[in-house]
Simulated scan of single mutants.
Amino acid sequence: MILCCGEALIDMIPTPVTDAEKAKDGADAQMGFVPHCGGAVFNTSVALGRLGQETGLFSGLSRDLFGRQLISALKASNVDPGFAEVSDQPTTLAFVHLKDGHAEYHFFDENSAGANLRPERLPELPDNVSALFFGGISLCNGAAAEAYAKLAVREKGERIIMIDPNVRAGFATDEVVYRQRLTAMIATAGIVKVSDEDLNWIYPGNAPIEEKIQQILKHEAGQGPGLVILTLGSKGAKGFLRSGPTVEVPAQAAEVVDTVGAGDTFNAGFLAAASEAGVLADAASGEIDPEQLRGCLGYGAHVAAVTVSRPGANPPWRAELVG
């Protein structure tokens, strides 16, 4: 099982709600917000479940109507929500503003179920959990972020760990602590997926991106990532191995509707392909064959292309990818 560890929330998506009579008169559409299940880690878990991987989610979930919506969506995509801590605190809401197909977020997270996690209440994991995935805004703030960090430290060396920082600096209440936490968690991981924006925030300065990636990879064997994946949007992705080779794959052509969930789906595609090929541990150690790495990255790009071709974070089912 791949256990995804991080936020599950509700994206409030702007949607036209124009009165039918006004629409007849040619009036401008008024916008409302429609609740959609979301969150970077939630999206990755759903994509993994739809791609046929045994998947679970460790998060803080609410008993409110939005929490029930999230749990229902997890089960519908074959994701086990049983690792989550359920409370009476409210669900995190993220109001989304779409500009030129790109999403900007405004979060309401104070005293939420997700923020209610504590380092002293970590779940014991069964033997069938072989890999952990961390990322998103869940790593930003407070005791909940420390809970995820503690889990990564506890499981380092016991299970494969992948992290996608997916930096949201504007959400952090203390950017210094947030940067320190991400740097420490990266050292626990075997696989790290970043964008150039992530790298430039985590490691400030004018050094070239490739130098910052090598900074991540220069840990002693067994003490840090063996693979860093750099995603480049429409320019594809690159995989940098501690053993030396760099592998590049192009983005797959798609008519982009929006980019919501694209990176999350890429993560799931890579994890699913590497897991099925039996090379996830090799990727984490940096010893994966470059051609196998190319195939795993290419699968991530393939499933991400499907997601960007339709509205919202709606990852493909495995059956949709045939051919």
Rank of each mutant, 00 (worst) to 15 (best):
L3K: 00
C5G: 05
G6P: 05
M12D: 03
P16M: 07
D19E: 15
D19A: 13
E21L: 14
K22Y: 07
A23T: 12
K24I: 01
G26L: 06
A27Y: 13
D28P: 15
Q30H: 08
G39V: 03
N43G: 03
N43A: 06
S45E: 07
S45F: 01
V46W: 09
A47L: 00
A47R: 15
G49C: 04
G49H: 05
G56H: 11
G56A: 10
L57D: 08
L57F: 04
F58D: 03
F58S: 07
S59I: 00
S59L: 11
G60M: 10
G60Q: 13
R63A: 10
R63P: 00
L65W: 10
R68T: 03
L74M: 15
V79K: 08
V79F: 12
V86G: 03
S87V: 02
Q89S: 14
T91F: 06
T92D: 13
A94I: 05
A94T: 13
V96A: 14
H102M: 01
H106L: 12
F107V: 01
F108W: 08
F108N: 09
A113S: 13
G114M: 12
G114T: 06
R118T: 13
L122S: 09
L122C: 10
L122W: 06
S130W: 07
L132E: 02
F133C: 02
I137N: 04
L139R: 00
C140D: 09
N141E: 14
A149L: 13
G157P: 09
I161S: 06
N166C: 02
G170P: 10
T173A: 10
D174T: 10
V176F: 09
V177L: 15
Q180G: 04
T183D: 11
M185F: 04
A187F: 00
G190S: 08
V192G: 00
D198Q: 05
Y203E: 02
I209R: 04
I209V: 15
I213R: 00
K218S: 13
H219V: 04
P225N: 02
P225T: 01
G226E: 01
L227V: 00
V228E: 00
I229N: 12
I229W: 08
L232H: 00
K235G: 02
K235Q: 15
K238S: 02
L241V: 05
L241T: 01
V247F: 08
V249L: 02
V249M: 07
P250F: 06
P250I: 08
A254F: 07
E255D: 14
E255L: 13
T259C: 08
G261K: 01
A262N: 10
G263T: 09
G263E: 05
A268W: 11
A268T: 07
A273M: 01
A274Q: 08
S285W: 11
S285R: 15
L293T: 05
L293H: 06
G295D: 10
G298W: 04
G300R: 01
A301M: 05
V303R: 00
A304D: 03
A304T: 01
A305S: 15
T307R: 08
V308K: 14
G312L: 02
W317Y: 12
A319T: 11
A319I: 08
G323P: 06
